[in-house]
Design a binder for these strands. Structure first.
Lengths: 158, 158
DNA sequence: ATGAATCTCTACTTCTATTGTCAAGAATAA
DNA sequence: TTATTCTTGACAATAGAAGTAGAGATTCAT
């Protein structure tokens, strides 16, 4: 019942971008250094986030990534959903048999009490994550007095 | 971010026991048949639940397992906690360095925004699971008209 | 045009936890 | 005393997570 590192790294990286947003796109190497995440791995995560429409990118010198939407329109749920693929505590809740997918763990359809239980838990979690935007995190960061990176000697961590 | 099968099977099995509670202890072979769970695997799960004080057992003929407490005093959270070991969406929230445990993924202690985020999500989930008892599930089962097993031809599933 | 910087895509590896299976042993009731 | 049932620990198969790697495509500055 753990979130994958993709979700955790994804949220941290996206927060980092929102917190340091400047005129230029942010580059993998800077984000990965500040957040202590393997740059190669972060690339993959950013591909997922881009596919989900949360990031846009630009190649070449001075290129990098930037948020595709304002920080108050990107929620933690968006990021977790993009990184995790879905937000369900169990698989048996999913629509069954969407083309060739392996059989669900449970075929009991309606007559299943616990299905409802897990679905509602997933929903609760999703609603909470949807209530927190990157902007909210940035505001919290400011309150906490997290340093924005001005010089590289000062490493902050989220 | 999936619950393990131990949690799912555990809840289903415990519900099964509560729903069919009789004068005699319930046996692995019956529960596993009704719930379609491998009996050998269910044994292991029941060991966890017993260690957590949710089940008691009796060996020998006519032996089996029975609930250690009334159904309204056992919550889904109890079961998930026993099966899952803990109820945290991320590891970095845990108390660090309790004797020789592998290093936490994150050493950033207080200066971590996302830590609070995941902790609160875990808490929400835990609170919800704690609000549902086995008795609640049984009541739902009755409303749904789930058959109690009177003869074996009729298989119900939760 | 050229070359360096940067993202893009795909494949591969390594590690760990999950999800079981198995066998021998201990307790109990009849 | 014997069949029944739980107990315990070891073991194996599988899947998924996490990270690494290389070749390619795009863009900018000169």
């Amino acid at each position: 019942m753990k979130l994958s590192t993709k979700s955790r790294y994804g949220v941290r990286a996206m927060f980092d971008m929102a917190y340091h947003a400047g005129t230029l796109p942010a580059q993998i190497k800077d984000i990965s250094r500040r957040q202590n995440i393997s740059p190669r791995y972060l690339e993959q995560i950013f591909q997922d986030l881009k596919k989900a429409g949360l990031l846009k990118s630009r190649r070449g010198p001075q290129g990098g990534y930037s948020l595709a939407k304002p920080a108050d329109e990107i929620t933690v749920k968006d990021i977790v959903l993009a990184a995790e693929g879905e937000l369900q505590l169990v698989d048996c809740v999913k629509n069954r048999r969407k083309k060739g997918e392996k059989a669900p763990a449970c075929d009991f359809d309606n007559r299943c009490l616990t299905q409802h239980l897990w679905a509602k838990g997933s929903q609760l979690l999703g609603d909470y994550f949807d209530s927190v935007s990157l902007k909210d995190l940035c505001d919290q960061g400011k309150e906490l007095g997290l340093e924005k990176e001005l010089d590289h000697r000062f490493m902050y961590f989220i």
